[in-house]
């Protein structure tokens, strides 16, 4: 090897650019990592958890609630318009909003 002096010539190779480890499909980048969608998703999880837990959904204190409606019973004699039942009925609006369409 000769010409050790001119060894420091800059290489034509560009510096190595860090490549993304995983190339996600476009729709993943668009939807899954949108902070608003993430927040909505965690809210949805929380609501689902509350619904499936069977715990009282209305945490307002006794005095602050509006008066209960007249009881309604089904043909088995079980009251159907309980507070829990109505609480289940209430969120559908939000549920609809939280529905996130995913590409097939």
């Amino acid at each position: 090897e000769s010409g050790s002096g001119k060894r420091k010539r800059k290489s034509r190779w560009a510096d190595e650019e860090p490549k993304p480890v995983v190339q996600l499909p476009d729709f993943m980048g668009g939807i899954e990592f949108d902070p608003e969608i993430q927040a909505l998703n965690s809210r949805l999880l929380e609501i689902s958890r509350m619904l499936s837990s069977g715990l009282p959904l209305d945490d307002r204190p006794e005095g602050a609630r509006s008066p209960s409606p007249e009881p309604v019973y089904d043909n088995m004699g079980i009251r159907i318009n309980t507070r829990e039942f109505r609480a289940r009925e209430r969120p559908p609006k939000l549920h609809k909003k939280l529905y996130i369409p995913m590409k097939e």
Binding site: W13, A14, E16
Partner: peptide, 10 residues
């Protein structure tokens, strides 16, 4: 893996 897509002399 490294060289594919990298620039050489632009």
């Amino acid at each position: 893996n490294v060289l594919g897509g990298r620039k050489f002399g632009g």
